[in-house]
Nucleic acid binder design. Sequence first.
DNA 1: CTGTTAGCGCATTCAG
DNA 2: CTGAATGCGCTAACAG
Lengths: 323, 323
Amino acid sequence: METVAARARVSRATVSRVVNGESSVRPEVRETVLRAIKELGYVPNAAARSLVTRSTNAVALVLSVPRQGGDRLTAAVVQYVTSVLEGAGKQITLMLADTAESHRRIVQHVEARLADGVVLLPPDRGDTLAERLSRTGVPVVLLGKPAIASLVPYVDVDNAGGAEAATEHLLAGGRRRVGMVCGPLELVAMQDRLAGHRAALRRAGRQPLLAPAELTRGSGAAATRQLLGDEPALDAVFAATDELALGALQAAREAGRRVPEDLAVVGFGDVDAASAVVPGLTTVRVPVADQALALARLLLSRLEGRHTESVVLPTRLVVRESS
Amino acid sequence: METVAARARVSRATVSRVVNGESSVRPEVRETVLRAIKELGYVPNAAARSLVTRSTNAVALVLSVPRQGGDRLTAAVVQYVTSVLEGAGKQITLMLADTAESHRRIVQHVEARLADGVVLLPPDRGDTLAERLSRTGVPVVLLGKPAIASLVPYVDVDNAGGAEAATEHLLAGGRRRVGMVCGPLELVAMQDRLAGHRAALRRAGRQPLLAPAELTRGSGAAATRQLLGDEPALDAVFAATDELALGALQAAREAGRRVPEDLAVVGFGDVDAASAVVPGLTTVRVPVADQALALARLLLSRLEGRHTESVVLPTRLVVRESS
DNA sequence: CTGTTAGCGCATTCAG
DNA sequence: CTGAATGCGCTAACAG
């Protein structure tokens, strides 16, 4: 900076003003300084700057692993959050929230004002990290509706609406006995999907028929077998995730039920495999990229002090051959 | 720090020594300082520290998108690199390398020593970012063997070996006419897979039979149709990726060829869908997590100044029903 | 082993 | 509108 100042025949203070885009510099002087900067390839020292400004122009992207959202969501978030926030001149610091120790480190990081904002992919099971961070006063945004109501804004997809649409689609197709393979209800997304399913059934005057499952294919198959055993007249299954639905397809095959003739199957998520299997899996598509983008924009809004509300993105039923 | 020093009745320098774990502090003094630190909740200011040490204790994780490796690999790298490097006390700065502008920013970032190391997921098509970064003198590690030989160490999987094993498996199963659906040969991984396939054929005294394809299911199907047309006696297809193999399965179905009776199909990657389709897809499993872990460790070694070689991880054939 | 001293590169008063 | 002076919080010699 000293060198730049000398070359432009001004003081360091003026260089600083130019670099920070203050308007109180005479245009011709500004030009001279800019030229000197370019010629010398000067690049400001971030450490020195944040030492004096007490702000790091950086945001923390906090990942909790593993997540049920899966790799697709993680990859999308990483990409879009970085893209949007870099575009706004922010630096992105990646942090992992897996252990209690890491939570301490994250809180400390934020308290030390090493981040002026946080994008938090919360763990699937309840956690208070979001609240703790939010209490430090820095803007925090969440991916996914938190289990306990909170003032922290979030981005989520319309799980209830998607489940409702899927169930209605089955009923509209003339299915009389619709079972549901549920995921673990500690997950808010699973609660919402169940609620949507119930709402659609209730409106049609039908009784729910549920089988719990873990989020694996094998567990989806087992739950489907159970439904099939409990209710021989079963002619449709709505599975809370595609992985579970793939298990349902497998169970149907093993039980000699034709899909979709004897048994319709609908999943949730539209993962790659959904379009690869035969028959193609009808499923609820989740707008992964939009979600990631919305998350980035939400934080940006908050950083700029704008008032911001949580975002819930619409889901869309993709009808294939399984229903 | 001043306050801590006062409370512990020592100088700031001593506090600094304790914080930085220097051994030249009398144990009892160290204790006192540590206690004062805890009581005051003191946390060192990273900006001030890196201002004077001229090192930020941070590494850059540079992502190029989109990548053929896919979301699974991206998610794994993000997770493991962060986990390992945070464990070593590093901060991770996420950067996107998509545009020429972003390349400039990354080089500048590294030249300004805002990162003491770089993990680079290079773009699939040739690029010189790795070389440019490496010339700045900071340790750089790559995911995937670069197209042009370089001194920059990388982590890759044994693409040639995997392809060779897949092809040998088909030949050992009595297949007489084995075609290959290739991906774009600008991708080094595709070159290697082709090379492995050729090596196995050569050893068996067979001629290659190739069909080029883009990395989509539809393109894999088209290429398979072409192979089927060119060579009616075709009884096996090795596809360079699982996505292509799924296309091959589709083409076989449409052509009325039974898999595996009439046509054996083998893929590469072992994506989720590979085990979900019927018949299950025989494929070459790629150790994604190991790759990510190796990448992180490789950078760590280089940061610690240890001599390091590139790493090539073994792949493994997973035999299912399609072959 | 510990304290003193001197900056690291920058933004920001306060004068001019 | 511009320059001179001051200190952000910390580490690194250097003495003691």
